[in-house]
Amino acid sequence: MESFGTFGLIAIIVVLFFLFLYYVPVVMWFSALVTGVRISLLQLILMRIRKVPPSAIVRAMIEAHKAGLHDVKRDELEAHYLAGGHIERVVHALVSASKANIDLSFKMATAIDLAGRDVFEAVQMSVNPKVIDTPPVSAVAKDGIQLIAKARVTVRANIKQLVGGAGEDTVLARVGEGIVSSIGSAASHKSVLENPDSISKLVLNKGLDAGTAFEILSIDIADIDIGKNIGAELMMDQAEADKNIAQAKAEERRAMAVALEQEMKAKAQEARAKVIEAEAEVPLAMAEAFRNGNLGIMDYVKYKNIEADTAMRESLSKQTPGNKSKKDKDDKIS
């Protein structure tokens, strides 16, 4: 029992020792003291209570102190960490900006970091400009020939515009718009192929980097390819559309003519029916005349003879010239 009690006591002492080292970071306090950073042991303990990692704060202060950045304060680092910022990126950016003679204050750096941008990468881009390749941009010259251009845009980060400035996508969109405008204003695609630098000059003069987080240093046309003959295709499409319209109008006129023909046939059938109806009244009228004594039997005979003579004349008039000549031969023979 005594050995168990001794073992338990030792375990409690070890646990208390580690808890003491956790809440009282003596090692970090000593390293800060050695490097010349003034921070009290009480402040490190309060950082643990405020759930701020003392190691990150101490490392950032040591790095800033060694780089000669004496305006970096512990309270400001803690406030930036509690606001969700990256204190290591901020201190790295401040050190890089100081070495490159770039005017970057701690307040500006923390604002850029809290805005969601990588402030350290922005400082590096200010020292070493970045080259952005644009996607293929299609444009049509005034002669109707399509050109497909690719450009390389060299940009440098504009530290003062990183907060609230437009991003890389806006720069690419503006450059593409400038390329389309430049090619579209050219009288011939040949002039664009002969002088591709005219596109770069025209686009650069438009000040496309205004309101963005970048400064455009140069725009170089990497490649220009000839695409389709858009003008000819549009003329062909227009001619095909005109032909279809003309065919539709002709079909409409034909349908109207067919409808008119059918209407005339219907009117002719209607008139023929009226004639047949009138002819059917003749026998009835004759019978009524017989009954009333207005028509005699001799009058009826004369009517039939006239009708027979008329039928004979009509049959003779319908004979062909060949039949008539044969009849004349028969008459001569007889």
Rank of each mutant, 00 (worst) to 15 (best):
T6G: 08
T6K: 11
L9G: 14
I10V: 11
I13R: 09
V14C: 09
V15D: 15
F17L: 15
F20P: 04
V24W: 09
V26H: 14
M28W: 13
S31A: 12
K51G: 00
A56C: 10
M61P: 01
K73S: 13
E78Q: 05
H80M: 02
N101D: 08
I102M: 05
K107C: 05
K107W: 06
M108G: 06
A115T: 09
D118N: 14
D118T: 07
Q124G: 14
V127S: 02
D133N: 09
P135I: 08
V137W: 01
G144N: 02
V153S: 01
R156E: 02
R156T: 06
G164V: 06
A166C: 04
E168C: 04
V171W: 01
V175G: 02
A186S: 01
S188T: 10
S200W: 04
K201H: 15
L208V: 10
D209K: 15
A210N: 11
A222Y: 07
I224Q: 02
A232V: 15
A241V: 07
I245R: 04
Q247K: 13
K267S: 03
Q269C: 03
E270S: 12
E277M: 10
A278F: 08
A280I: 06
N294Y: 10
T310W: 09
A311Q: 11
R313Y: 12
E314R: 15
T320D: 04
K324N: 11
K327N: 14
K332T: 11
